[in-house]
C-alpha cells in the first residue's frame, strides 16, 4: 500500500493535476484582459496594375501601416501574429480575402509599430474585377498564448478604392 511505486504514482498524478489546473487558470486569465488596439493604414502608391496573361487582375501597392497592439499582451502571451488583408466581394465570389502583409510580434516592446512596405503576398483577383473596386483593409491579429486558448480579433477599415484603369 505504501510502496515506492504507489507514492511515485500519487506524486506524479498530483503534480500533473496542479500543472493542468495552472494552465487552465492562466488561459482563463486572458479573458479578463480587455484590449483596446488601434490601427491606421494608408495606400501610398499603386506601383502597377495589370491583367495577367492568365486573365486575372493583379495589382501591386505600397502601404503605410501603423498600429498599437500593446494592450493585447498579457503574461500568458507568447506572440501576436498580425496581418493586413484586403477584403471585397465580386459578382462571382461572395468573399475574397487576400493577405497583403503579415508579421510576428514577439513582445510588447515591438507592439507599437509603423511599417512602410509594398504588398508581401501577391494581390491577385479571381477574375477581372479589380478596376475601380472598393475594398476594406482589415487588420487581423491572432494572439498565441503560452498555453491555452488562441484568441483572434480584427479592425476593419473601409473605404479604399482601386484605380479605374490599368497602370504600368
Amino acid at each position: 500500500m505504501h510502496s515506492f511505486g504507489y507514492r511515485a504514482n500519487a506524486l506524479l498524478t498530483f503534480s500533473l493535476t496542479i500543472l493542468a489546473f495552472m494552465c487552465a487558470i492562466s488561459s482563463l486569465s486572458d479573458s479578463l484582459n480587455s484590449p483596446s488596439p488601434s490601427a491606421q493604414v494608408q495606400v501610398l502608391n499603386i506601383n502597377w496594375f495589370k491583367k495577367q496573361p492568365k486573365g486575372n487582375d493583379e495589382i501591386s501597392v505600397t502601404l503605410n501601416i501603423s498600429a498599437d497592439l500593446q494592450s493585447l499582451f498579457t503574461w500568458n502571451t507568447k506572440q501576436v501574429f498580425v496581418f493586413l488583408a484586403a477584403e471585397y466581394d465580386t459578382p462571382k465570389n461572395s468573399l475574397n480575402q487576400i493577405s497583403l502583409w503579415d508579421g510576428i510580434i514577439p513582445s510588447k516592446e515591438h507592439a507599437k509599430f509603423l511599417i512602410h512596405t509594398s504588398n508581401k503576398y501577391r494581390f491577385i483577383d479571381q477574375g477581372t474585377n479589380l478596376r475601380g473596386k472598393e475594398f476594406n483593409l482589415t487588420l487581423h491579429w491572432h494572439v498565441m498564448p503560452k498555453t491555452g486558448k488562441m484568441l483572434a480579433d480584427k479592425i476593419v477599415m473601409p473605404g479604399y478604392q482601386l484605380p479605374r484603369e490599368y497602370r504600368r
Binding site: F81, D89, T90, N93, L95, N96, Q97, Q126
Partner: peptide
C-alpha cells in the same frame, strides 16, 4: 499551416 487567402463562391458556396 495558416490560411492567407480565401475566395468564396457566390452561387455554390464552395470555398478556395
Amino acid at each position: 499551416h495558416r490560411v492567407i487567402k480565401v475566395h468564396e463562391r457566390q452561387d455554390t458556396q464552395e470555398t478556395y
